[in-house]
Amino acid sequence: MHELSLCESLLQIMERSAVEQGYSRVKRVWLEIGALAGVEVEAMRFGFDVATRGSLAEGAGLEIIELPGEAWCMACAKKVPVRQRYDECPACGGCQLQVTGGDQMRIKELEVE
């Protein structure tokens, strides 16, 4: 639901970078989206097309690198994979998990000209 705002933020970052780095068109965008970031990848693609219309990134390709969720299980004292925040530890079934990765949403890189 907030993917459109995220795409508007993304556009602002690109516009600012275009001034700093001296380019006028974005051809491809690489994003890293974690499984626990609360972002629907399909909604993000849709939002990207809408938000970039008429901008320097109109028609740009959107490459989304999806990263898995990862947590530290205090009971097992090791890293375990998680799909959601409320997952139990796949090894011991406990709930003492601290999410350590997969909650990021980052813009990594652009192909520009």
């Binding site: 933020s9 993304l10 970052i13 780095q21 051809k27 949403m105 980052r106 813009i107 990594k108 520009v112």
Partner: peptide, 17 residues
């Protein structure tokens, strides 16, 4: 990347602003 274009590293949180 195609000729004439270049890559720009951003490495920023989308919500940075």
């Amino acid at each position: 990347e195609s000729p004439g274009s270049r890559l720009v590293r951003i490495e920023q949180d989308i919500l940075a602003k």
